[in-house]
Design a protein around this nucleic acid. Structure first.
Lengths: 111, 111
DNA sequence: CTCTAAGTACGATGGTTGTCGAACCATAGC
DNA sequence: GCTATGGTTCGACAACCATCGTACTTAGAG
C-alpha cells in the first residue's frame, strides 16, 4: 500500500495525463445527477428545446446551473434564438468519442 | 418555469420513483472519479485483486473509501481471503442491468 | 418606451466528497 | 503471545456541489 500525499490540483493533472480520462470523468459526472439525466433523456429524441420547456422542479438559477454543467462537459450545446436558449444533445460528437455510452445510459434509464 | 422548493431527500425519493434512475445515477457517480475509473479498468481483465494490488497514489483510508463507493454502487464485490479483501468486477449483473454501459466506459478509457 | 419573458450571474448556504492521519481489527507467521 | 500486514473506521478539513433568492441582461410585445 503506497502512502503518497498529493494535492487536488496535482490529482487533476495526473488524471489528465491519461488520454480521455478527464473528459470521460466529466461526462460521467454530468450524467450522474437525476435532473441532468432527465434533461438528456428528453433531448434524446432529437428535438431541440428551450430550458423552460422541461418543466423541471427547480428554480431558474438551478436550472441554469445544470444546463451549464451539461454544456461544459460537452453533452449538450446551446444556441440563442430570440429570448430563448435552444438546447441540443451533442449526440454525434459523444458517440464518436465514447461509442455506445450515451445509448447505454439512455437505455438504462428507460428500463 | 416552475418554482417549487424540495429538499435533498425528497429529491432522492422523486428520483427513485422512476425505475432504475437512482441506481444508474449511483453507478455513473461511482465511475466519475479518476481513481475509481482506474480501479475498474484494472479489474476489467477479470482478474481478482486485493486492494493493495493497485498501487494507487493515495493513502490506505482513501483507498478504502473508493472501494466502498464502488461496492455500494454495485460495481464491484469484495470477499475476505486471509488477510486480504479480494475485489471482483460485477460484470454480469452490471451488463444485465445496464447493457453496454461498462463496455462503453472501458472502451472510452482505453482510447 | 415600458413591460414581460427567458435566462444568466452572483453570493450565500447546507450537504457531499476526497483526502488525510491515527486508531483499530483480523489474520498469518514467528 | 508478539509483530507485521492488509484493511476498515473515525474525526477533521478543505473543496466542491445542488439549491435558493436577488439582481441583471436581452429580446420581443404592447
Amino acid at each position: 500500500m503506497v502512502n503518497v500525499v498529493i494535492t487536488e490540483s496535482e490529482r487533476a493533472e495526473v488524471a489528465s495525463c491519461e488520454t480521455g480520462e478527464l473528459e470521460l470523468a466529466a461526462v460521467l459526472h454530468a450524467l450522474s445527477d437525476p435532473i441532468r439525466l432527465r434533461i438528456v433523456t428528453e433531448l434524446s429524441d432529437g428535438v431541440e428545446r428551450s430550458c423552460g420547456a422541461f418543466n423541471l422542479p427547480i428554480t431558474k438559477s438551478t436550472c441554469s446551473h445544470h444546463f451549464r454543467v451539461l454544456r461544459e462537459a460537452g453533452v449538450i450545446s446551446t444556441r440563442v434564438e430570440g429570448k430563448s436558449r435552444i438546447n441540443v444533445l451533442r449526440r454525434d460528437p459523444l458517440d464518436e468519442r465514447f461509442p455506445g455510452l450515451l445509448d447505454a445510459v439512455l437505455q438504462a434509464r428507460s428500463d
